[in-house]
């Protein structure tokens, strides 16, 4: 109601700007009320900062070997997270690893979203395409997730780019289903009928009216999927299908460290904690977003 008062004294332009922010601001405010989501958000922001400013944050070159200082424990001089069996600084590798997992996560989730949202929209809106698209999606669903990714990597070859592609393909069916479900429920609403009565084209209805109204589940899905994507990248790298040495990747670091479990447990524990924290953060934020974006709460406050 404050905005109304502003509008009366300052004229409409202020009102326009105020109102434009409103939806995002209310969502953010609600998200910030959720303490767990705030913790998650902080972890995500730290990871993003680490990824962007890696060269400045890292204390050493992440791939430079120094056998004289190998397997130093945590809190050693100059290496506060210790070093691995080749004497590479663990902290620097973790920092650069944040970059790898974030980039792979973002790329694979956005590719998966692009495909999944498009398929979901088409399947939900056009009844004729529905059967065909959803059967293809069912086919993709028939494979267990990580196996499907391994199959795709087996075809494309190992490497982080292929891991991103594999994870994105694996994200498509889930995303398509979620979007199709929302489209099916939105498409029968009266405002879509009203748009048809006005003579709006199908493309306009799909992208200007249906897509914005099913954005909430898509945002939640994307956040949750980031967690899965990062975890899968680590898993595939652990299996040797993703990042190849000496790339500092968390999953690969665990794989390298497991031979030294008894002598230098920090080599597996530290990247393990990093993966756990990030996955936890994205899941918690996704949960928080789901509550914050709840359309009923959003519209009736």
């Amino acid at each position: 109601m404050e905005t109304g008062a502003v509008a009366k004294t300052d004229g409409t332009p202020v009102l326009v700007r105020k109102k434009k922010e409103k939806m995002y601001v209310t969502t953010l405010k609600r998200l910030l009320k959720n303490k767990l989501a705030v913790v998650g958000l902080i972890i995500i922001i730290i990871q993003i900062l680490m990824a962007i400013f890696a060269p400045w944050i890292a204390t050493h070159d992440p791939v430079k070997q120094n056998l004289a200082e190998s397997e130093l424990p945590i809190f050693s001089d100059g290496h506060w997270l210790g070093t691995d069996n080749y004497g590479r600084d663990m902290w620097s590798r973790i920092v650069y690893g944040a970059r790898v997992s974030l980039v792979v996560g973002i790329v694979s989730v956005s590719l998966g979203l692009a495909g999944g949202v498009l398929l979901g929209l088409l399947a939900g809106y056009y009844k004729k395409l529905d059967g065909l698209i959803m059967r293809i999606v069912d086919l993709l669903f028939a494979f267990p997730g990580i196996l499907l990714a391994m199959l795709i990597i087996a075809i494309l070859g190992t490497g982080l780019v292929n891991v991103a592609i594999a994870i994105s393909i694996w994200s498509i069916p889930t995303c398509a289903r979620i979007v199709r479900g929302s489209v099916l429920s939105i498409k029968n609403r009266e405002y879509i009928l009203a748009m048809k009565a006005l003579g709006a084209s199908n493309a306009r209805i799909i992208f200007k009216h249906i897509l914005p109204n099913c954005l909430a589940p898509i945002i939640v899905f994307a956040t949750m999927r980031m967690a899965t994507a990062i975890l899968s990248t680590a898993s595939l790298s652990y299996l040797g299908l993703g990042a190849q040495p000496p790339t500092p990747e968390w999953g690969a670091m665990i794989a390298a460290g497991q031979d030294f479990m008894w002598t230098s447990p920090h080599m597996t524990v530290v990247p393990g904690i990093a993966i756990m924290l990030v996955v936890f953060a994205f899941n918690v934020v996704g949960d928080g977003l789901r509550d914050a974006l709840d359309p009923n709460m959003d519209l009736n406050n």
């Binding site: 109102k19 609403r189 009266e190 405002y191 009928l193 009203a194 748009m195 009565a197 006005l198 003579g199 709006a200 084209s201 306009r204 200007k208 009216h209 914005p212 109204n213 359309p295 519209l299």
Partner: peptide, 28 residues
Amino acid sequence: QMIFQDPYASLDPRQRIGAALEEVFVIH
């Protein structure tokens, strides 16, 4: 043209009134 029964359901909840009305002119 048509006027619908439920005036709330017949308006896109994510669209401002101005934009909703302007859209008619954008289309035609």
